[in-house]
Design a protein around this nucleic acid. Structure first.
Lengths: 212, 212
DNA sequence: CAATAATGGAGAGTAGTACTATCTAAGTCA
DNA sequence: TGACTTAGATAGTACTACTCTCCATTATTG
């Protein structure tokens, strides 16, 4: 398969394929001559994965590269699979973040603090800071309801990890983490619309009377 | 309060404040002379809100402007509050998207299809497409578990909407939708780490033995 | 009251990201 | 043979979110 056929098979422009190759997202084809290379199914699959990570999951090219490079190396026992996935979607925590608020919540929910890494805790703290600095106050108990729901999600995630091979587990964890996020957010919005429709009828929160 | 004091009070550089003003995110101060204007608390609050929307929620300047302009106009009865918030975080659906897969799911979950707008349905379809085109298959029943959890979240959201004043309701819906998303995602990651720690111990999915 | 600093408003400049286009020498195919 | 394709390198583009510079005022301070 030559590059133009690879482009046709995936819908990705040739120039973009070359760009991804330069950026080390896509492995080289097999050179058959100085100006000719062959690509195969592995390139098609990889390219589709790249587009899903950049397009659907909204990762940057740099984060995508890191995640793919992590996926490439077979996971050693004790390798931090979740960390690999989470680093791809979590920006590193600033140094001066006070993790105490997160620690308190983790304690309250019985989520072992020692199991949870700094960056994810910092992400929670920053998200909550964003809420409060915007002058937005969550009603009492709201955070706990959210926590229960996300715990359900996470338990489903963890239970479904295939345990037969480390490679399959790694793939599942890494892709499941980043690619499922947009699914969950889309679901929340639809569920909000449905719940609001049931509770208030169309007139209050849902679709207005007129066209959008 | 002059612009430099506004900058000091919010941590936003003067040049950036001027930029937000040009971009109509921030209302003008009161001119007291040709080169002097006064700012007040409303500017401080607005600026903090802008930073939360752009920084924490990850909105673009354009989406932030739209959302703020929507917040500004008092909501008319029948106004589409959820739509306003959802448009700020959902990119408009491409024309050619087939909504059938989403419709089927909505039917299965009993989420009234007529309550759910095209763009949100398209977002779900695209997110699921991303999963499958990445070669990632969700186990049977997984989507339903996710749906149940997100339904819980959405019901909490809708129940907590203050019903006393339309302005408060609008503010709650719009900000709650976009600012809570990062909170939920951070929680999912922490819950995954905790659940994985409980199920597998530190060695399999969680923090590796060595330093990262 | 004069020197210094700050401000509003406008425009231009910058840094980063994700491509996209052009070019050359080399190879392929009809 | 001659049009077409390709690898690899370099340069250019479009967009976003700022950031800087400038000038004619105002304000502040010694």
């Amino acid at each position: 398969m030559r590059i133009s056929q690879l482009a046709a098979a995936t819908g990705v422009p040739v120039a973009t394929i070359k760009y991804y190759r330069r950026e080390k997202l896509l492995h080289d084809g097999v050179l058959t001559a100085a100006t000719q290379a062959h690509y195969d199914d592995s390139h098609v699959r990889r390219l589709k994965l790249i587009r899903a990570l950049i397009g659907t999951a909204g990762l940057s090219v740099a984060a995508t590269r890191e995640l793919l490079q992590g996926l490439e190396n077979p996971p050693e026992p004790g390798h931090d699979l979740l960390g690999l996935a989470h680093r791809a979607v979590t920006r590193p925590a600033a140094d001066g973040v006070d993790l105490a608020p997160a620690q308190e919540l983790l304690g309250r929910w019985g989520w072992g603090e020692q199991a949870c890494d700094r960056n994810s805790q910092a992400a929670l703290v920053e998200a909550l800071d964003g809420l409060s600095s915007a002058g937005f106050e969550l009603p009492d108990g709201m955070l706990d309801r959210y926590a229960r729901a996300m715990r359900d999600v996470a338990e489903a995630d963890v239970e479904s990890v295939p345990t037969d091979s480390p490679e399959a587990a790694m793939r599942y964890v890494v892709l499941g983490t980043v690619l499922v996020e947009p699914v969950l957010l889309a679901m929340r919005r639809l569920a909000q619309q449905s719940a609001s429709f049931e509770r208030f009828g169309a007139a209050t929160l849902g679709q207005g009377a007129g066209p959008v």
